[in-house]
């Protein structure tokens, strides 16, 4: 009895401190680029924030809704291309162009939303086929540069890395917040119920079509926005980078490694994969996808709940 009371108060303290810790972390990340850190570190943080956006979005569709998506890169690419076209051909101001990137991702997600009726492997292969269809279409579309890609005007900021750091930072914070709210909302809980046992969920009257549509749109906006920002950061778009399967593989592996369907999973996964990826590129250039593939296999077989699940079991044992 006494132990339980102590345990409960401990839990409360931890919970309270977690909130304080998160706010502190956000403030720290906010003032970090103002300190004289190397540009490379800023670049890594920009990548980290982008990965966070992508992983968290994939987590909504692949983790929360339980639809394994092999073509999520579509929204990233559409955002990037919309941004590039708007800025280069129509001279639209950059902030409106970025928002246009998000809007076009929503539109595409609405257009392809009938695919949500498919189940399991059919959905996965269907999305993969769609992503390939987009990639080939853009490769053959001369107006946007075809397979060679197109250049985007170089941003005229005084400190490019600082500006992009803040753009990606704000986007990733918004993404994480919105996904968190979605997961804790009635819709998110209903999605989890459906994923765990669809018969029961049907019986208690959960409208899965609506939830899937909302989740799909939600998971499309943020990659679209991230794609726009990243296109400008690179000042270049091409089909291979923005519609290729590399980014899809990255999203999947970040979520799988971190822990599927949990809010904290993609965050852990993004950090681990970013570090591993940098090491792999530095020490074994060309082998990075092999390292990824081995990680996916090992994790899905031996730790299907990811690093989060492993930490949880370790925590319980103590």
């Amino acid at each position: 009895m006494k132990d339980e009371a102590i345990n409960n108060s401990l839990k409360r303290i931890v919970k309270h401190n977690i909130n304080v810790g998160i706010i502190l972390l956000i403030v720290l990340l906010g003032i970090l680029p103002l300190t004289p850190i190397p540009t490379f570190i800023k670049h890594l943080f920009i990548l980290l924030f982008m990965y966070l956006v992508l992983a968290q979005s994939w987590n909504v569709i692949g983790g929360l809704l339980g639809l394994v998506d092999f073509g999520h890169v579509i929204f990233f690419g559409i955002g990037a291309y919309t941004f590039a076209i708007a800025l280069t051909y129509y001279y639209i101001p950059w902030h409106i162009s970025i928002i246009l990137g998000g809007i076009s991702a929503i539109l595409i997600s609405l257009i392809i939303s009938p695919i949500l009726r498919l189940r399991g492997a059919y959905f996965a292969i269907g999305m993969f086929a769609l992503a390939e269809a987009f990639r080939i279409t853009f490769t053959n579309w001369g107006w946007v540069g075809g397979g060679g890609g197109m250049y985007v005007p170089i941003p005229k900021f005084s400190d490019i890395y600082l500006s992009f750091y803040y753009m990606m930072f704000v986007l990733s914070m918004i993404t994480n917040y919105v996904v968190f709210r979605f997961m804790k909302s009635k819709l998110g809980l209903a999605a989890i119920a459906f994923r765990e046992n669809y018969v029961t969920a049907h019986v208690i009257g959960i409208n899965i079509v609506k939830i899937r549509l909302y989740g799909f749109i939600l998971s499309a906006i943020f990659p679209g926005l991230a794609g726009s920002i990243y296109a400008w950061y690179l000042s270049f778009v091409n089909p291979q980078t923005f519609f290729g399967e590399y980014l899809t593989a990255l999203m999947i592996i970040m979520v799988i490694v971190g822990g599927r369907g949990k809010f904290i999973g993609p965050i852990i996964g993004a950090i681990i994969i970013l570090i591993l990826n940098q090491f792999a590129i530095y020490y074994f250039p060309g082998f990075d996808l092999i390292v990824f593939a081995i990680i996916i296999i090992v994790v899905t077989i031996f730790a299907p709940e990811g690093v989060y699940g492993l930490l949880k079991t370790l925590w319980r044992r103590h």
């Binding site: 394994v68 092999f70 492997a121 996965a124 593989a249 999947i252 799988i256 996808l289 092999i290 990824f292 593939a293 081995i294 996916i296 296999i297 899905t300 077989i301």
Partner: peptide, 11 residues
């Protein structure tokens, strides 16, 4: 299975 075989094909 899909995930693992996909990873295998990547590998």
């Amino acid at each position: 299975t899909l995930l693992v075989t996909y990873a295998l094909s990547l590998l």
